[in-house]
Simulated assay, not measured.
Amino acid sequence: MGTLVGVVGDDALGDALRDAGEAVERGSDGAVPETDQVVAVGEDAVAAVARADGDPLVLPVAAGRGVRSVPRDDAVAAVSGLADTRIETHPVLRVTLPDGTVEQAFWDVTLVTADAARISEFTIASTADRIGRFRADGVVIATAAGSPGYAHRVGGPILAPSDQAVVAPIAPFATDPDHWVLPVAGLSASVERDEATVELLIDDRVSRTISYQESVTISLGTPVRTAVVGESQSRFE
């Protein structure tokens, strides 16, 4: 057998890799194996690996366009090719909440009103400037990996891997809203009106509510190294 490979998100794939002669350690109860290589199946699995301690080489499988993902049917062949791989590096966002708690996001961070047809007002700022203030249902701050997802559906561009983020208002009151591509480190988002309940979502998981005049700040965490093999798909097709 070769190098021990962790598998997160698909026990059946772990069995298939064992049948192909790979040494496999499967995650359990949401735990990420402490192996040098991890196969992460699906977007949730990739995000779970990003939040965990350690610095494994991650092979994304069936994980969408945000990373150069391998189709599920090609995963066994892709693992056998990990010895001859190119590496892409993706940032992880460290999100500091108003109470000082820190959470991590791989895809995106979203502030959004909890009730339909309610809007609030938001400010986006960097350490040097106030970038914009607008009324909207919310705002999404997406990494390059997250940029093909919800941020793109609300009008943001798709980014190549970098330490920049797409910032896009959600259903803005303005008819011609701005979208921004900004360095991740030092970004903040705050709520400027006490008119609606605003929820903070970290990679689509509801974290907590953000009150009037509260803000979240973003810095860079430990990046994720993803493997690019012959079976990896383009992020732009």
Score class of each variant (00 low, 15 high):
residue 144 A to R: 05
residue 1 M to C: 06
residue 73 D to A: 15
residue 47 A to E: 08
residue 41 V to H: 07
residue 42 G to M: 08
residue 34 E to T: 14
residue 193 R to T: 10
residue 229 V to S: 00
residue 80 S to E: 14
residue 89 T to E: 15
residue 13 L to R: 03
residue 162 S to M: 11
residue 44 D to P: 12
residue 153 R to W: 08
residue 223 P to R: 04
residue 102 V to S: 06
residue 142 A to Q: 07
residue 201 L to G: 09
residue 3 T to E: 00
residue 183 P to G: 13
residue 144 A to C: 09
residue 111 L to K: 10
residue 145 A to C: 01
residue 66 G to D: 01
residue 150 Y to C: 08
residue 75 A to Y: 02
residue 147 S to I: 09
residue 184 V to G: 07
residue 46 V to R: 09
residue 80 S to W: 07
residue 18 R to N: 11
residue 165 A to E: 12
residue 154 V to W: 05
residue 105 A to Q: 06
residue 69 S to A: 06
residue 188 S to D: 07
residue 154 V to P: 00
residue 128 A to F: 14
residue 8 V to Q: 08
residue 161 P to F: 01
residue 26 R to C: 00
residue 166 V to F: 05
residue 210 I to Q: 04
residue 164 Q to D: 15
residue 83 A to W: 15
residue 151 A to Y: 11
residue 217 T to G: 15
residue 123 T to W: 05
residue 191 V to L: 06
residue 12 A to I: 13
residue 87 I to Q: 15
residue 211 S to Q: 12
residue 62 A to W: 03
residue 41 V to S: 07
residue 18 R to G: 03
residue 164 Q to M: 13
residue 59 L to Y: 07
residue 215 S to N: 14
residue 227 A to L: 06
residue 169 P to V: 04
residue 221 G to V: 08
residue 159 L to K: 04
residue 15 D to E: 12
residue 121 E to H: 05
residue 191 V to K: 10
residue 39 V to Q: 01
residue 198 V to K: 12
residue 182 L to E: 02
residue 227 A to F: 02
residue 100 G to P: 06
residue 142 A to M: 02
residue 17 L to H: 03
residue 97 L to S: 11
residue 2 G to P: 13
residue 237 E to W: 13
residue 125 A to F: 09
residue 114 A to Q: 15
residue 236 F to L: 10
residue 95 V to E: 03
residue 24 V to E: 00
residue 74 D to Q: 12
residue 28 S to T: 10
residue 190 S to P: 08
residue 108 D to K: 04
residue 158 I to N: 03
residue 197 T to A: 14
residue 174 A to W: 04
residue 48 A to M: 06
residue 98 P to K: 04
residue 234 S to Q: 11
residue 168 A to G: 10
residue 221 G to I: 00
residue 91 P to I: 03
residue 51 R to S: 13
residue 60 P to I: 01
residue 234 S to W: 03
residue 175 T to S: 11
residue 29 D to E: 14
residue 163 D to V: 02
residue 146 G to K: 10
residue 96 T to W: 08
residue 199 E to W: 12
residue 20 A to H: 05
residue 44 D to R: 15
residue 30 G to L: 05
residue 81 G to K: 12
residue 150 Y to L: 13
residue 4 L to V: 14
residue 7 V to N: 04
residue 108 D to R: 00
residue 47 A to D: 05
residue 210 I to T: 00
residue 233 Q to V: 05
residue 210 I to D: 03
residue 87 I to Y: 01
residue 63 A to C: 02
residue 234 S to E: 08
residue 122 F to P: 09
residue 62 A to Y: 01
residue 8 V to G: 08
residue 181 V to C: 10
residue 15 D to A: 09
residue 117 A to G: 05
residue 165 A to D: 07
residue 201 L to A: 06
residue 130 R to T: 14
residue 18 R to W: 02
residue 30 G to F: 09
residue 110 T to C: 15
residue 61 V to M: 02
residue 38 V to Y: 03
residue 164 Q to R: 11
residue 1 M to G: 04
residue 142 A to E: 07
residue 64 G to H: 12
residue 136 A to V: 08
residue 138 G to F: 02
residue 6 G to C: 01
residue 55 D to V: 09
residue 51 R to H: 09
residue 24 V to R: 00
residue 7 V to D: 01
residue 4 L to E: 02
residue 21 G to V: 11
residue 138 G to S: 05
residue 183 P to V: 05
residue 126 S to K: 03
residue 136 A to F: 00
residue 146 G to P: 09
residue 109 V to P: 07
residue 128 A to G: 11
residue 149 G to S: 10
